[in-house]
Design a binder for these strands. Structure first.
Length: 509
RNA sequence: GGCGAUUUAGUGUAGGGGUCUAGCACGCCACCCUCUCAAGGUGGAGACUCGGGUUCGAAUCCCGAAUUCGCUACCA
């Protein structure tokens, strides 16, 4: 039996990075076993619906390479894949439960329920209290009929029989048993918007869509027994899916689930893509816009709560797929280690093909006002290659390699103090003379021995001369090998910069 | 409060009775490399939540406690 899994987000806002991780694990499991990945939109909460959220989900998954086989966009044999378009199906199933006596109608208003909660310390709508509430059980069929006809709003509640141990077989946690007495009579359907709640829609859809494995976050574990009961009530136990409750992604510092706020507070994205909130107008940063490569995000996320069983860390999505197994999932929540995420991105940038890196750098240059047409792709590419090992994000290429495109307009004061002395201008003049003895292109393998030889012959201090040289060309004491820089720039530009530095740098007194 | 889950260094994890003086990675520190900053290499500091058992022997098995997290909505 090939598995059919589903990722079932609610379009109530941007897809959270924890949701992405859940989607990824669904994907890896499905692909590992040649199964099918379904994307179902669970928009049963009309109150919290956010326009644009569904597109955001699709775009995010597409960016990350988490492909979908069946869904709203992809179509498929078990559609529609959006719950708000499945009302007829839910109504029919609610009726089935009602007819079988496994559910009942309740008229209690939100205010009445609130009052009940106030009156009773640990109020729960269940076997112990349903007998004194306003529902079809206490009112009788006739009165219930009358109230419905009169247009009174109602909900349908699941009738939970108390005192039964219900066991869920979870693929990462093993057997989890809870007593049905602690479950309340969950609302399954609301007449107000003619929509089911999560619990009902979820079970019905998973069954109808022939889902074999329900892979979701740990926050669903407490309601899993309720879902088991629902499968029983429908008579679907023989085809009930296996459950997998993944450990949660936790805040990097303090306690609790990773939330939207943590990103702003700690300075890292918690969303895959930048999100513009249509209501508040707030902008939340995204991994994509921050400069993360999708492969790095996938790799990083996969290793949060799962490991391949050996020491490998850098793995493509296909490698992850081939190794994926729930037996190697951990049970405890994983604190979100943002530093490690940066490291993954660093690694993936190092592995980028030259052309791709060149393209990325061109964008960065353009954003910083450089006319990229003035430089050849080769020049841009070589500059990027030289500095890529010291960056984590493409944007940092600018900090590291701007001097290849713009002559320094200031000189690092600390470096000046350390490396620029009264004698330096004269030595720099001499250096220009030496450079002029060399080919105009300043090939490193020629320039390096020549200049180093000159420094040695003169008995100059190597570090001081080279760093003054660097200061003049780069503006500070950092960057790739000096002769690699000068080879790329060529003699004219190098000479111009040295002259400029000699006239600009004033010794501080 | 109730119910459930969880527990190896700062973080992610390996480990499934002796091979553990507990491995790997990120981060941190030092050294090497070196014209600088990185990268890289080498090394270092740093952990089995606690208490009882079981056993010749426990990070590994059992019990208890504690911890942290989640759920406890006409939200998912």
């Amino acid at each position: 039996m090939t598995p059919r899994v589903r990722f079932a987000p609610s379009p109530t806002g941007p897809l959270h990075i924890g949701g992405v991780r859940t989607a990824l694990f669904n994907y890896l499991f499905a692909r590992r076993h040649g199964g099918t990945m379904v994307l179902r939109i669970e928009d049963t909460d009309s109150q919290r619906f956010v326009p644009g959220a569904e597109d955001y989900i699709n775009e995010s998954l597409a960016w990350l390479g988490i492909t979908i086989d069946e869904g709203v966009r992809e179509g498929g044999p078990y559609g529609p894949y959006k719950q708000s378009e499945r009302r007829d199906i839910y109504r029919e199933h609610v009726k089935q439960l009602l007819d079988a006596g496994r559910a009942y109608i309740a008229f209690d208003t939100p205010e009445e329920l609130e009052a009940a909660r106030q009156a009773t310390p640990n109020f729960q709508y269940d076997a112990s209290t349903r007998g004194r509430m306003r529902n079809s059980l206490t009112l009788g069929d006739e009165e219930t009929r009358r109230l419905i006809d009169a247009g009174e709003k109602y909900v349908v509640r699941f009738l939970v029989e108390p005192g039964r141990d219900v066991t869920v077989d979870d693929m990462v946690r093993g057997l989890v048993t809870i007593n049905s007495s602690i479950l309340d009579d969950k609302v399954l359907y609301k007449s107000a918007d003619d929509l089911p709640t999560y619990h009902l829609a979820n079970i019905v859809d998973d069954h109808l869509m022939k889902i074999t494995h329900v892979i979701r976050g740990e926050e669903w574990l407490p309601s899993a027994p309720l879902h088991v009961l629902l499968y029983e009530a429908f008579g679907w136990t023989d085809t009930m899916p296996r459950f997998v409750h993944l450990p949660l992604l936790l805040k990097p510092d303090g306690k609790g689930k990773l939330s939207k706020r943590d990103g702003d507070r700690l300075g890292f994205p918690v969303f895959p893509l930048e999100w513009h909130d249509p209501k508040s107008g707030d902008i939340s940063s995204g991994y994509r816009e921050k400069g993360y490569l999708p492969e790095a995000v996938v790799n990083f996320l996969a290793l949060l709560g799962w490991n391949p069983g050996d020491d490998s860390e850098i793995m493509s999505i296909d490698e992850l797929t081939s190794k994926f197994d729930f037996a190697r999932c951990s049970k405890a929540g994983a604190k979100f280690d943002y530093e490690k995420g940066r490291w993954f991105n660093h690694k993936y940038i190092q592995a980028l093909p030259a052309e791709k890196l060149t393209e990325l750098f061109k964008d960065v240059l353009a954003k910083n006002g450089v006319d990229t047409a003035a430089f050849s792709d080769e020049y841009i590419g070589r500059a990027a290659e030289m500095v890529k090992e010291r960056i984590n994000f493409p944007a940092e290429l600018w900090d590291q390699a701007r001097f290849f495109f713009v002559a320094p307009d200031s000189y690092d004061p600390k470096a000046v103090k350390k490396r620029w002395s009264e004698q330096t201008p004269a030595i720099m003049d001499e250096l220009i003379g030496e450079l002029n003895k060399l080919p105009e292109t300043l090939p490193a393998d020629v320039a390096e021995p020549a200049i180093l030889g000159w420094i040695a012959d003169k008995g100059y201090h190597l570090g001081n001369v080279m760093n003054a040289f660097r200061l003049a060309v780069v503006g500070e004491c950092k960057g790739p090998h000096m002769f690699a820089i000068t080879e790329l720039m060529g003699r004219d530009e190098v000479e111009r910069r040295i002259r400029r530095a000699v006239s600009e740098i004033k010794l501080a007194e």
